[in-house]
Simulated scan of single mutants.
Amino acid sequence: MNNPHQNARMTPLGRAEMVRRIVEEQRPVAEAAAGFGISRRTARKWLARWRAEGAVGP
């Protein structure tokens, strides 16, 4: 998603960074979500998209 809506909390780069922390640094989803000010549910959704679609997903 290269054109986030105006109320989006994070940019695609921010979402990619959050996913990187979960995957590469093996941080818990709850910790990464809290660090970015989003819900665990949203963080899990973006992580699932990344796993399904790769770098284009989050």
Rank of each mutant, 00 (worst) to 15 (best):
L47Q: 07
R20K: 13
A30V: 10
A32R: 07
G54H: 04
M18D: 03
A16R: 10
G14K: 03
N2G: 15
Q6P: 12
A30N: 12
L47T: 02
Q6V: 15
V23R: 07
N3W: 11
G37Q: 10
R20Q: 13
P12A: 07
E24V: 14
P58K: 06
R44K: 04
F36C: 06
A43G: 02
P58V: 14
M1Q: 08
L13R: 11
R21I: 08
F36S: 03
T11C: 13
A52Q: 13
G54D: 07
E17I: 12
R15M: 13
R20G: 08
A55Y: 05
E17D: 09
A34Y: 05
G54E: 00
M1K: 09
P28V: 00
M10L: 15
T42L: 12
N7P: 04
E53P: 02
E17C: 08
Q26I: 00
S39N: 06
A30F: 03
K45G: 03
R21C: 10
R44N: 11
V56K: 10
A43T: 00
K45N: 12
G14E: 15
H5P: 11
L47D: 03
E17Y: 04
V23G: 00
N2Y: 09
A55C: 07
G57I: 03
P58S: 12
E31M: 10
H5K: 06
R20M: 04
R9N: 12
G57H: 02
E25D: 15
S39H: 02
A8C: 08
R15T: 03
Q26T: 07
R49I: 04
R15F: 04
G54W: 05
E24R: 13
F36E: 01
V19F: 04
R44D: 12
V29R: 01
G35K: 09
F36R: 06
E31D: 14
R15W: 12
R40C: 08
W50R: 01
V19E: 03
R9W: 07
R41D: 04
A34M: 11
M10Y: 03
F36L: 12
G57E: 02
N2I: 15
Q26V: 07
R15D: 07
R41S: 11
A16E: 08
P28Y: 03
R49N: 11
Q26P: 03
L47V: 03
W50G: 04
A52H: 08
A33W: 01
P12G: 09
P58F: 13
A48E: 10
A33K: 06
L13F: 10
A30Q: 12
A55Q: 11
T42A: 10
G54K: 02
A55D: 14
P12T: 09
E24D: 15
S39A: 11
A52Y: 01
R15P: 01
R51W: 06
M1L: 10
E53Q: 13
I22T: 08
A16D: 01
G54P: 01
A30H: 10
N2A: 15
E24W: 12
A33L: 08
R27C: 06
G57S: 08
A52P: 05
G54C: 06
A33H: 07
R49A: 11
P12F: 09
R15G: 01
H5V: 11
R20T: 10
I22G: 00
R49K: 11
E17G: 06
A16V: 00
P28L: 13
Q6R: 15
G57M: 03
R51F: 05
R15C: 07
I38D: 05
G57K: 02
E25Q: 15
